[in-house]
Design a protein around this nucleic acid. Sequence first.
RNA 1: GUGGAUGUAGCUCAGCUGGUAGAGCGCGGGAUUGUGGAUCCCGAUGUCGAGGGUUCAAGCCCCUUCAUCCACCCCA
Length: 439
Amino acid sequence: MQAQTLKGFRDFLPTDMAPRQAMVRRIEVVFETHGFSPLQTPALEYLETLTGKYGDEGDKLLYRFTDHGDRQVALRYDLTVPLARVVAQHRAQLQLPFRRYQIAPVWRADKPQRGRYREFVQCDADICGADSALADAEVLVAGLSVLRSLGVEQAQMHLNHRDILFGILRLCNVPHHPAQIACIRAIDKLDKLTPAAVVEEIVQQADLPADQAQAVVAAFAAGWPLSHWQQQALDAADLPMQAAIERVAAVINLVTAAGLDRWLAFDCSIARGLDYYTGIIYETRLTDPKVASMGAVMSGGRYDGLIGLFGKEKIPAVGISVGLDRLFAALYELGLVRTDSAQVPIYATVLQPELAGAVLILVQGLRDHGWRAEIDTLGGKVGKQFERAAKRGARLALVLGPDEQAAGTVVVKDLRQSTQQSVAQTQLAAVVAAILRPQ
RNA sequence: GUGGAUGUAGCUCAGCUGGUAGAGCGCGGGAUUGUGGAUCCCGAUGUCGAGGGUUCAAGCCCCUUCAUCCACCCCA
């Protein structure tokens, strides 16, 4: 039989898994300190729970099948729709606003490529039951704090609002919905294609005359500040657009107050594909050229209509999703990941099988103090055992032979400095602490 | 779903116009049996992704298939 993983699926060996886990723990801490509580939901959902929430493309990418009881099921595609289901289903037990975080794998039957996998982990934080600008800002603050806590400096969060998008299109006299959607799709590519190519795409996909398509691209590509659109919305008496602009401005002010605005920028060309977004939307990319092609690492938005699809009550919600795998891959390429966390700092050798028990007693004593310690389980020559100790990345090796045992001592060898000392067994923990945790 | 590239020892790769496989790293053993990461010596390893075809002969040519990577679509 051939040992192999499925296309787009991966194993994580300890050298990768240990730092990954460390990263997850950091994110958990950030979310928890921001007042979000953990939630877990099943990997599998009823197919109908998931279909129709992500748009046609999303529906195609659902991993779906029929289970043994002839039920149509699907692996979750994201964490947001299951959250909406949970809020509707357990409405009575939840106090609103409900702030939850969830760090879990999701599955998409996509074609794998750089920074894209079929199984990947999302780290979501959402607030359900609050439609305020402060709720939007809280979620952004949590997400940006994650980046800060991971040491990411070169990133840019692009902020936009669905109603600004549609408002600009109305200003350009593109009132029909299908044409608007086509325009938005094309506009979203402004960062990849030339303006002329985007014009061409609009002409083709939205069926607009060339001069109008040109006007649309010009409007979006100019990089106008929020104030420009505010004036435009006022002049056109476009109330939804005015409200959207006020909302975005309010959110930016709040994030600025939190001291996290250095990553933030209004960008009217951000579109977001997932169908359920209704308000503010955002997308974060890393700006270091080495990893910029990796795609968005953190995005989300407001989805006030989604929870209502699962019950009679309409509950507004806003959330953010951190892409753990992309972020990890990027940090790895940027050299910001320490790969030594899979190693063990203390390695106890066993010179004679009869002394294994005595060694184990010492090792257990260290473990009780919280030290990560490994005992050699293969035996053989001391030289070999030291070699294994070094390969495990151990800083200290313990040696306990008959002489030491008789004297109630143990040899502590510093593998990095090639020095060693004989210490009383009762002093072992103190000596280890002095070496591994100076000061 | 569309297009492009690649697939040779555990890893990174070499292999000239077809003549039955190499290097580095790594790995295993050793240098008077209670001290490693340096050095030196010795050693093993591959149905050359898989299947078929052309040929006296294929890792190298042709077809098929699978896998991986990259781009598009979409997205984390």
